[in-house]
Amino acid sequence: MISSEVLPDYVGDYLIISKYNDQDNSNQQTDLYKGMPAVKNNHVIEVDGNAFMFNDSITLDYQLKYFEEHFLK
């Protein structure tokens, strides 16, 4: 776990966020989040955390297709 203050130091050109229906996403409304280059450049990919939880072959195929669609659009 890292503190939110240093998070921008670890985020690259793209940011992938796993979201859950019952999760608090208020951190995405902060100036710290909005100031990250990946966010400013609209390079944030939000994924359904439940759909990305497993690593069986069917789930991995789904994840690959999802990333192909979102990285290559």
Rank of each mutant, 00 (worst) to 15 (best):
N50Y: 10
D9K: 13
I45E: 05
G49V: 04
F71I: 10
N50F: 12
K19M: 00
N25Q: 12
D48N: 07
L15T: 02
V11M: 06
D24S: 09
Y62T: 12
N41K: 01
G12W: 01
K40G: 03
S26V: 01
L64I: 12
Q63W: 01
I45N: 03
M36Q: 03
Q28L: 04
Q23L: 11
E69Q: 12
H43V: 01
Y62N: 14
E69M: 10
I16M: 06
L32P: 14
F54G: 10
V6L: 10
N50C: 07
V47I: 14
F67C: 05
N25I: 07
N27I: 09
E68Q: 11
M36K: 00
N27P: 01
F71A: 09
D13Q: 02
Q23T: 08
Q29Y: 15
Y66K: 12
L32G: 14
Y10I: 03
N21I: 01
V6K: 04
N55I: 15
Q28R: 03
N55Q: 15
K40A: 06
D9W: 13
N25A: 11
E46S: 06
V47W: 03
M36R: 01
A38T: 05
Q23M: 13
F52E: 07
P8K: 00
P8L: 03
N27K: 08
V44D: 04
M53W: 15
I58F: 07
D56V: 04
L72N: 13
K65P: 04
Q28A: 02
D48R: 00
I45A: 03
Y20W: 03
D22M: 04
S18L: 00
V39N: 06
Y66W: 13
S4M: 13
S26T: 08
L32H: 13
L60F: 06
S57R: 12
F67V: 09
T59R: 10
D56G: 08
Y20Q: 00
V39Q: 05
Y10G: 05
L64P: 01
L15N: 02
D22Q: 06
V44I: 02
G12A: 02
M53K: 11
N25Y: 13
N55C: 14
M53I: 12
Q63F: 02
D24Y: 10
K65I: 06
M53R: 11
G49K: 02
M36P: 04
K40R: 02
F71T: 02
F67Y: 09
D22S: 05
K40Q: 08
M36T: 04
S57N: 14
A51M: 07
F71R: 06
S57E: 15
E69N: 12
K19C: 00
L7A: 10
P37N: 13
I17K: 00
N21D: 11
L15Y: 03
Q29N: 14
G35P: 06
S57G: 07
Q28C: 04
L72W: 12
M1T: 11
K19I: 00
Q23E: 15
L7Q: 07
S18H: 01
A51W: 01
D9A: 14
E46K: 00
N50I: 11
M53A: 14
T59Y: 06
Y33R: 09
K19L: 00
F52M: 08
V11E: 09
V47N: 05
Q63K: 13
